[in-house]
Amino acid sequence: MRLSVLDLVPVRSDQSTGDALAATRSLARVADGCGYHRYWLAEHHNMPAVAATNPPLLIAMVAGATERIRVGSGGVMLPNHAPLVVAEQFALLEAAFPGRIDLGIGRAPGTDPVTSYALRHGAGGVTDDAVAQFPSYVDNVIAMMSPGGVGLQVNGRLHALTATPHATSRPDVWLLGSSDYSAQLAASRGLPYVFAHHFSGNGTAEALSLYRSGFQPSEELAEPRTFLTVNAVVAATQEEADRLAAPQLQAMVALRTGGQLRPQRLIEEAEADPVPDAHLPLVLAMRERWVIGTPETAAAKIRGLAEEFGVDEVMVHPVAGAVAGTPVDASPARETTLQLLATELL
């Protein structure tokens, strides 16, 4: 089995953005050393607990701090950006780190409506039509990154357009989604596809079935290619794992119930202000989908999920919290999660 990592660059209540970035570099080096296959960084905006606002910058930082692991976006929210800008960014990343770059593309805004408006309108009038144009935008990004580039019709004349002057390779392009839409689009384009199981948890089997049944082979991919994403906290004992999971569970409850969003709490802060009883069913439902346990039980659950959904790669989103006094430039419990899983599965 291949193991990979998803990182949202969480910001704890005791951290600055710079501290969180330092912790991500450290986590990526652990993943690289343990033999993880890929390390993806998300795109989220205007969130007090998430510093992953710019995947290309983060990818450059992580790829430069590691040796062999593939690094990519999980994902770039394409309607927020001009396709040429994305193509230029990832063509340069591939040129700098050949054979190590993944471009994961999503359709969701990755933020609240106000920030979405600022992203799409503040830089030259991009409108909500970008969502409707998503399939053609995907095609354009892929074509622009290819060595031959594309021909663009402007005022009746054909103009050559390439993302970089002399590309010799192209990043692997993945489509990401939490609905049937991206599954069907990926299948029609012959692209690899990932369903956001770590976030949605519902509809995974149906989306993967749609993708596999409708897959049309392409020059890049002869057969369907996918993997599973899952939130994970792994510790020496079940009790410790449960304790470490509390801050992220509380954050997800707040997100789903319209509660106050804040920097990720420390363990002690979460224990002093537990989830109200009315939200406990939501906590229990999320726990069922997450991997929270000892190395042995966590590995068994991951193997079971891989078998259930027919995948040979699982992307772990390590969500373990931190106790007071933890070095601000590190996330030891997240690193331990990766190390313990690697010991059992790699």
Rank of each mutant, 00 (worst) to 15 (best):
V71H: 04
R256W: 00
A299F: 06
A298C: 04
T294A: 00
G64I: 07
R303T: 02
A183P: 04
L93P: 03
W174E: 01
V114S: 09
L8Y: 14
L161H: 06
S213Y: 01
Q133H: 13
L152M: 13
A52P: 06
R157V: 14
A51G: 12
S136A: 15
I292T: 05
T168R: 14
L58Y: 09
E239W: 03
D277I: 06
G148Q: 13
G214M: 10
R25I: 14
R157T: 13
P171T: 11
C34V: 13
G259L: 11
R262C: 04
D312C: 09
A251R: 15
R303F: 05
E296L: 10
I302N: 01
N231C: 09
V114T: 13
T168K: 13
T127N: 03
M144V: 07
P48S: 09
Q153P: 01
T24A: 15
A330C: 07
L345Y: 05
L340Y: 06
T24V: 12
A108N: 11
A298Q: 03
P224R: 03
A183L: 01
L341D: 02
Q238S: 06
A285R: 12
G99V: 00
P165R: 04
A306P: 01
R243M: 12
L175G: 07
L175C: 04
R25A: 10
E271C: 01
D19C: 11
G293E: 02
I105V: 15
R29W: 08
R29H: 02
P217C: 08
L345F: 05
Y39A: 04
S16P: 03
H45E: 07
D329S: 12
Q339W: 00
Y39M: 03
S218M: 07
V71F: 02
V126G: 15
M144L: 15
E219L: 13
I267A: 07
V319R: 05
Q248E: 11
T337W: 05
P274T: 08
Q89R: 12
A270F: 08
P276F: 05
A187S: 06
P318H: 11
G74V: 09
E335W: 07
A299N: 07
L208R: 00
A300D: 12
M47E: 12
A270P: 09
